[in-house]
């Protein structure tokens, strides 16, 4: 464990909790893509099946459990409790266009052709594109509330910190996991455009809206 990974994990956790709290306190999930949140729940479920097979640390286990619980709580709030506020007319990204190719790729390119390893690989590939329905929704409506922007910034920050973590681990331990690194870089690139808008607009106190 190094500081980049720890801060990355905490940034990820902050993003997840911030979103949950926003939905809970505003009693609304307007502007949030339920599809992205469903995909994240699927990501955590397929990745953390190793909770049953290997123990790494108390930290590792508790974070996994918290991520899974929060992901399902978010999905529950969007699709059940505050369903009436869910903006499904704007959440039109076809999630199957992500899940199916990613599933195929996980079968073809993986470290080991075993069920658990294929599911882990699937979750890594899926995580890299799971935010696309949310970004698509923002591009459709043309704006995002500032709290949604903070959420995305923390998620993107988590990815960027993981890249630094991989560089650090490569030089200090000789460790690298090519699948995680390539997927992680793809994921970070998806946030670049958003980062630019965030820095130029949200930080200066404006609502994030796209140039007309």
């Amino acid at each position: 464990m190094n500081v980049f990974r720890l801060v990355g994990d905490l940034s990820h956790l902050l993003a997840i909790i911030m979103l949950l709290k926003k939905i809970w306190s505003s009693r609304s999930c307007a502007g949030i893509s339920g599809k992205s949140q469903l995909l994240f729940a699927l990501v955590f479920t397929t990745r953390y099946l190793d909770l049953f097979t290997s123990f790494i640390s108390v930290y590792n286990t508790s974070m996994k459990v918290i991520y899974i619980l929060c992901a399902y709580a978010t999905v529950y709030l969007i699709y059940v409790k505050f369903k009436a506020t869910y903006d499904h007319n704007h959440d039109t990204f076809r999630a199957e266009f992500l899940v199916v190719p990613v599933g195929g790729l996980a079968f073809l390119v993986n470290h080991d052709f075993t069920p658990l390893e294929i599911l882990w690989t699937f979750s890594i590939y899926l995580e890299s594109v799971a935010i696309m329905p949310q970004l698509f929704m923002i591009s459709k409506t043309g704006e995002a509330e500032s709290i949604t922007s903070h959420y995305l910034f923390c998620l993107g920050g988590y990815r960027a910190l993981y890249i630094i973590n991989w560089l650090y681990r490569f030089y200090s331990e000789g460790f690298f996991d090519l699948i995680a690194i390539v997927a992680g870089c793809v994921q970070t690139i998806l946030y670049c455009d958003f980062f630019y808008l965030y820095i130029t607009k949200v930080i200066y106190g404006q609502k994030l809206s796209l140039p007309a």
Binding site: E117, W120, Y162
Partner: peptide
């Protein structure tokens, strides 16, 4: 080289 036996990252 990576150790893919156990994935220790979240």
């Amino acid at each position: 080289s990576g150790d893919y036996e156990v994935h220790d990252e979240l």
